[in-house]
């Protein structure tokens, strides 16, 4: 019970430390440059307090419950003994497809952590409001989550096979550039943004553990060079999936219109 209390105090202090510079900038500009009272100041301050409490509790809960188990799981799933399974083969005769549980875990954990990512919820709420409901909150979140899931499983495949990271990232960029010309104009900036928002509080620690665990156990990989890069995959592929979502819904819309005119 006592260590729970110290944990609460520690996490809250860490969050406060993170919020202080932001609050200083906001209120500094408000009072020194704008020089007008903030509308509904009491409500806004309460809002900040809620964000502070919410973020602290959120991080504390993740640290206590989900992260230790998730990290342990990433280690166990990448363990050569588990991957070889009943085949009882030597480590170096493992093929890339023997790691299927790792890919599946990467996909599932990428999807599920993205659904819980608070900053993505924030952007989805805003996009829904700005687009007048045309972009659904859940539609966007699920699309982004699929992008992250595909990205992370491809990233684990890369670590297993040892293909250099920039081949994937550069081909991803090429796809993004091509899609940009064909996707509906309204979705493009939002798609670019969704690359950056996917990877924060929930996703990064679990995904990093998976990458490092895998790089440690696959023969011939270095944790320093190959352990990184999963986050890059997780922030590139949502751009592609969100633009594809825009393209598909525009295409469906067109087809529906064509059939009704006939």
């Amino acid at each position: 019970m006592l260590d729970l209390l110290t944990d609460i105090v520690d996490t809250t202090l860490a969050t406060v430390k993170e919020v202080i510079p932001i609050a200083a900038i906001l209120f500094g500009f408000q009072f020194l440059v704008i020089r007008k009272p903030i509308p509904n100041i009491k409500r806004v301050l309460f809002g900040f307090l809620y964000v502070l409490i919410g973020l602290s509790l959120f991080l504390l809960g993740l640290e206590r419950a989900l992260f230790p188990l998730g990290k342990l799981m990433a280690q166990q799933l990448t363990d050569p003994a588990f991957i070889a399974g009943s085949k009882s083969l030597a480590t170096d005769s493992l093929q890339w497809f023997d790691y299927y549980w790792v890919y599946l875990f990467a996909f599932a954990i990428g999807f599920s952590t993205t659904i819980a990512e608070p900053s993505l919820i924030a952007v989805a709420i805003k996009a829904n409001e700005v687009s007048g409901g045309a972009i659904g909150i859940w539609g966007l979140r699920i699309t982004v989550a699929i992008g992250v899931a595909v990205g992370i499983s491809l990233g684990t495949y890369r670590i297993v096979t040892g293909i250099p990271i920039h081949y994937f990232i550069i081909s991803g960029y090429v796809i993004v550039v091509i899609q940009t010309f064909f996707a509906p104009k309204l979705i493009v900036p939002l798609a670019y943004d969704s690359g950056g928002v996917t990877t924060s509080t929930v996703t990064v620690p679990l995904v990093a553990a998976l990458g490092l665990g895998l790089a440690e156990t696959v023969p011939g990989r270095s944790t320093l060079i190959d352990g990184f890069g999963l986050i890059a995959f997780a922030s590139l592929f949502p751009i592609i999936s969100v633009m594809a979502y825009g393209q598909i819904s525009a295409w469906l819309d067109k087809r529906r219109k064509r059939t009704t005119y006939r």
């Binding site: 806004v44 809002g47 307090l49 809620y50 809960g61 206590r64 419950a65 989900l66």
Partner: peptide, 28 residues
């Protein structure tokens, strides 16, 4: 038991965060 407590914290945290988001961060 630790897991259950942790999940409850995460739940409460996410709820508070979203409340605060719409009350504080977005408006300011």
């Amino acid at each position: 038991a630790d897991m259950v407590i942790g999940v409850i914290f995460v739940l409460l945290g996410l709820t508070f965060f979203i409340f605060g988001l719409e009350m504080g961060l977005f408006p300011i």
